[in-house]
Simulated scan of single mutants.
Amino acid sequence: MFMMIANYLCTTLSWHIGINYFDNHKKLKFMQSIALVNISQLGKYIPGKLWSYMIQIYWLASKGIPKTTVLYLNIVTTLLPILVSLLIGSLLLMLLPNWYHMKTEILMFIGLLLVINLVLFNKNFLKSFIGIISKITRQKISFYQLSTRRIISMQLFYIAGAFFWALAGCFISLSIGFSLDSLKILFISSAMLLGDVIGFLILIAPGGLGVREGTMFLILKGTGIIQFALIFPIVMRLLCIVTDLIMGIVSVLIISRSKYFSRNNN
């Protein structure tokens, strides 16, 4: 569970680095970012998964931060961890004997992810894309863009978070009585990363319920231990719920004691 919390903190720190890049508002303290990110993340258990973004937009807009800026930041902080998890998870998947037959397809997919990653770093492309959206909607969309250096620093924390997430899976395996070897670590790490991101991408599944577990089972059954492939995703789900509740409670306590979240404090 501690590794899961470490993952949550890395994710929050990346968001914190992003929001404090913009100088048109009072800088957030890290504890405030923990509260805002993790209380809003509870919205992922509501079908649609857009509620967490709505909460952030509502809160930050009341503090003078443009809605387009918050939306842009959330797009970046959503795409970056997805790309990191898919890239690392796919690379690990390619090393597994059960997936050798799909090596070419996985390599092509990794190449596509790298292209998307480079496009995300390209400010000119993003500016052109926003211009097209502005013309379609007939509304002027303007905001400060994150620098490439800032995006890279954010991505490094997502990579660290992915490491802690995979490490959490290894500890879970040991805690339920299954030993580890190098091959099983690859299976677990790939299942943790790909299961989490695929569960997130299926919008109609609250918290990725069922989708994440199914993806994990599909990968972990390659270990040849069906009991492990069945038990691991269930234990993982229960620990995630507990971790979400802990972070949610911590967030509520921070909010209740912070003047930043007061309606009268703008």
Rank of each mutant, 00 (worst) to 15 (best):
residue 92 L to R: 02
residue 21 Y to L: 01
residue 97 P to Q: 13
residue 62 S to V: 07
residue 98 N to D: 15
residue 68 T to D: 05
residue 84 V to T: 04
residue 29 K to L: 10
residue 70 V to L: 01
residue 63 K to G: 04
residue 61 A to R: 14
residue 65 I to W: 01
residue 56 Q to G: 06
residue 49 K to N: 15
residue 99 W to P: 07
residue 58 Y to V: 11
residue 47 P to M: 10
residue 61 A to L: 05
residue 96 L to N: 11
residue 98 N to M: 14
residue 23 D to Y: 13
residue 42 L to D: 06
residue 71 L to W: 01
residue 47 P to K: 08
residue 53 Y to G: 15
residue 94 M to E: 13
residue 86 L to K: 03
residue 29 K to V: 08
residue 53 Y to D: 15
residue 33 S to Q: 07
residue 87 L to F: 14
residue 47 P to D: 10
residue 23 D to A: 07
residue 56 Q to Y: 12
residue 96 L to V: 12
residue 32 Q to M: 03
residue 59 W to I: 10
residue 21 Y to P: 00
residue 47 P to A: 11
residue 54 M to Y: 15
residue 88 I to C: 05
residue 65 I to N: 04
residue 30 F to Q: 07
residue 85 S to Q: 13
residue 34 I to Q: 06
residue 28 L to N: 00
residue 27 K to F: 02
residue 23 D to R: 10
residue 63 K to W: 03
residue 97 P to Y: 13
residue 40 S to E: 09
residue 21 Y to E: 01
residue 44 K to N: 13
residue 71 L to H: 02
residue 92 L to P: 04
residue 100 Y to I: 15
residue 83 L to T: 04
residue 83 L to N: 01
residue 79 L to I: 14
residue 38 N to S: 02
residue 86 L to Q: 07
residue 94 M to F: 14
residue 23 D to S: 03
residue 90 S to A: 13
residue 66 P to G: 02
residue 30 F to G: 07
residue 62 S to A: 09
residue 51 W to R: 11
residue 57 I to E: 11
residue 85 S to H: 09
residue 21 Y to M: 00
residue 59 W to M: 10
residue 95 L to I: 14
residue 20 N to S: 02
residue 33 S to H: 01
residue 55 I to H: 08
residue 22 F to T: 00
residue 40 S to F: 10
residue 32 Q to F: 02
residue 27 K to M: 00
residue 76 V to T: 00
residue 74 N to P: 06
residue 59 W to Q: 11
residue 98 N to F: 14
residue 43 G to H: 05
residue 96 L to T: 12
